[in-house]
Design a protein around this nucleic acid. Structure first.
Length: 564
RNA sequence: GCCCGGGUAACUCAGUUGGUAGAGUGCCAGUUUCGUAAACUGGAAGCCGAGGGUUCAAAUCCCUCUCUGGGCUCCA
């Protein structure tokens, strides 16, 4: 409850029109009171009669101190953005009037609840004439902490009804990939099927990182907020961060890895021979995005970046950027995703001299050209600390989402005082290149799921093969084949239920399983298998020993297309 | 955060002027043993997102909150 209190020479109001439902009827159109304590009241969401009583006993005390005989209660919604519903607010307001009448000898009057009123105030000029108070519990940072009732409704999934069939959420429902729960808004619960895809993407980039000379590291997800004061993020980013008290310290969950990466670099001395130093990490990040910005996997509050920071000498910029572009190009090629590269140049407000900017921008542009990547220029759209290349990919609705980004940074190394020992024996500042390739795994998966419309290539598919028996007669053989595939680490499922073959095939098609192995009398007799791909093509009567190596090769080479 | 629209069984959705809930799919059981996208019968399954209000009576009307979809804004 919020109270605004004035000691007035005179207060007068006039009713214009009712504003809420319900509102107080049968009130005089116009009224004025002289030499009164006027109490403006906003009834808030969690207010109780106890708070209301306390507010009244406090105002009675003030009236005694100020020797006022008149008390005016005036409903005043504008004091709070957390208002109680009118019906209950009115009840509590009237309760306060009764309390004031019963507990004091003051002459109590009130303005009617629920009206749009014209108001005139003449306030006295002494120190206690104007006061504000609030009554409530668990007030923190000016806001009330909302508590939920604990019951089974906590286990409630987010509502995805009404989405189009090719939306990544609809596909996720069909293939049981992931879900969101109300208690962790915009944070992903990965189901076994979804996690396989997530994990395969990770494995793929790990292979690539290894190939390109990166090392993996990991840093905490939490730190004292002092860290972001050093990095300079705190001013701009604070409202997007989850910040809280722990052991009397203000700590935050990390919304980006860079400051941690800087600390890691500072943990020892480096020689120019150590550079370029390429450190990658896949830590989770937490960003308290405004509610309206959230959207499925596209924008979440807990995300995983395939992040890397490259510490390098000035003379290494060009070759590093070059290999980075090549990296991105190769990575995206395997998914046959159409992407758009955008080069953002020096903004008007920037750090560093124009020569450095030109060198950096030229390095980025040159690398794009050498790798024959089509790009457009976003003039003056770079970060204040350096130019960048962004890669945007389209979703099923044609919206563009930024995935990969490559940014040159001269700023953080300076703030953190990073150095390496040069050939000349002196300390030099390294330049840092930030880059992500997938961007956030979550967002990339959303785009990829929609791009493939749920038809994952074998290396990504949660279930690669399903073995179907036509009737009970072939179920034993089906089990044998199933075991054989399992032994070879194929992600395989067995369906020997008594459903019809047509039903089983339909079920496998809906799940978009790449291959179904169909086994009936013919196959049992000849010790062969029949393979049907989800495209509908098939090979009848081949041997499992012929099929398995081909399948394994398709998976390990991460082929885009199915063999059938 | 703002504007508009949603939340009913695990999923997709009906639910009339307010009278305490229904289908299909899936699941479970039984029948059936089948050759390339849905065999048949039966059963269980619901705090109608949460809290409050109006009413004799609320999934239905009103308010607040919450989650969610689209748009705006935001997005180092």
């Amino acid at each position: 409850m919020k109270i605004l209190q004035y000691d007035v020479n005179k207060i007068e109001w006039e009713l214009i029109e009712p504003e809420t439902d319900p509102y107080e009827r049968d009130a005089p159109k116009k009224k004025e009171v002289e030499d009164a304590l006027a109490m403006f009241i906003a009834v808030e969401n969690d207010d109780t009669e106890a708070f209301a009583s306390k507010a009244i006993s406090d105002v009675i005390e003030f009236a005694a101190k100020l020797k006022r005989k008149n008390l005016v209660l005036y409903p005043f919604a504008h004091l709070s953005s957390n208002l109680e519903a009118p019906a209950r607010a009115m009840t509590l307001f009237h309760y306060m009037i009764k309390e004031a009448e019963n507990k004091s000898k003051l002459s109590v009057s009130h303005a009617p609840f629920g009206w749009n009123k014209a108001l005139r105030l003449d306030v006295k000029g002494h120190p206690l004439a104007e006061m504000s108070r609030s009554y409530g519990s668990e007030v923190k940072g000016g806001k009330k902490v909302k508590k939920r009732v604990y019951d089974v409704s906590l286990a409630k999934k987010a509502d995805w009804s009404g989405l189009p069939e090719n939306d990544h959420r609809s596909i996720a429902e069909r293939q049981d990939l992931f879900s969101f729960q109300e208690v962790s808004p915009a944070m992903v619960y990965w189901h076994p099927n979804g996690f396989i895809i997530y994990d395969q993407l990770m494995k793929y980039i790990r292979d690539k990182l290894d190939e390109y000379g990166y090392q993996m590291v990991a840093t905490p997800i939490m730190a004292n907020t002092a860290l972001w004061h050093i990095s300079g993020h705190i001013d701009h980013y604070r409202e997007n961060m989850f910040v809280f008290d722990a052991n009397d310290q203000e700590v935050g969950l990390k919304p980006m890895n860079c400051p941690f990466a800087m600390l890691l670099f500072k943990s020892r001395k480096w020689s120019y021979r150590d550079l370029p130093l390429r450190l990658a990490d896949f830590d989770k990040l937490y960003r308290n995005e405004i509610s309206g910005a959230l959207s499925g996997l596209f924008r979440v509050r807990e995300l995983t970046q395939d992040d890397a920071h490259i510490y390098m000498r000035e003379d290494q910029i060009e070759s590093e950027i070059n290999s980075m572009i090549k990296f991105v190009n190769e990575m995206y090629g395997i998914f046959s995703l159409d992407f758009k590269a955008k080069l953002s140049t020096m903004p008007d407000s920037h750090l560093g001299d124009e020569d450095t900017w030109k060198k950096a921008t030229d390095a980025l542009e040159g690398a794009l050209k050498r790798n024959k990547v089509k790009y457009e220029i976003k003039d003056k759209e770079g970060a204040f600390y350096g130019p960048k290349i962004d890669i945007d990919v389209k979703d099923s609705m044609g919206r563009e989402w930024q995935c990969a980004t490559i940014q040159l940074d001269y700023q953080l190394p300076q703030r953190f005082g990073l150095t390496y020992t040069g050939e000349d024996g002196k300390e030099h500042m390294p330049i840092v290149l930030h880059r992500v390739v997938y961007g956030s795994l979550e967002r990339f998966l959303a785009v990829l799921i929609e791009h493939l419309n749920g038809k994952f290539p074998a290396w990504l598919a949660p279930v690669q093969v399903r073995v179907l028996s036509i009737s009970e007669k072939s179920s034993k053989y089906a089990e044998e084949i199933y075991k054989k595939l399992r032994e070879q680490h194929i992600r395989v499922e067995l369906d020997i239920s008594d459903k019809t073959l047509q039903y089983k095939i339909r079920d496998g098609q809906i799940q978009q399983i790449p291959y179904m192995i169909i086994l009936g009398d013919k196959e049992v007799e000849g010790k062969k298998i029949s393979v049907r791909s989800r495209s509908g093509k098939q090979r009848m009567g081949i041997s499992i020993d012929e099929f398995l190596p081909q399948l394994k090769e398709e998976i390990s080479n991460r082929k885009k297309e199915l063999m059938l």
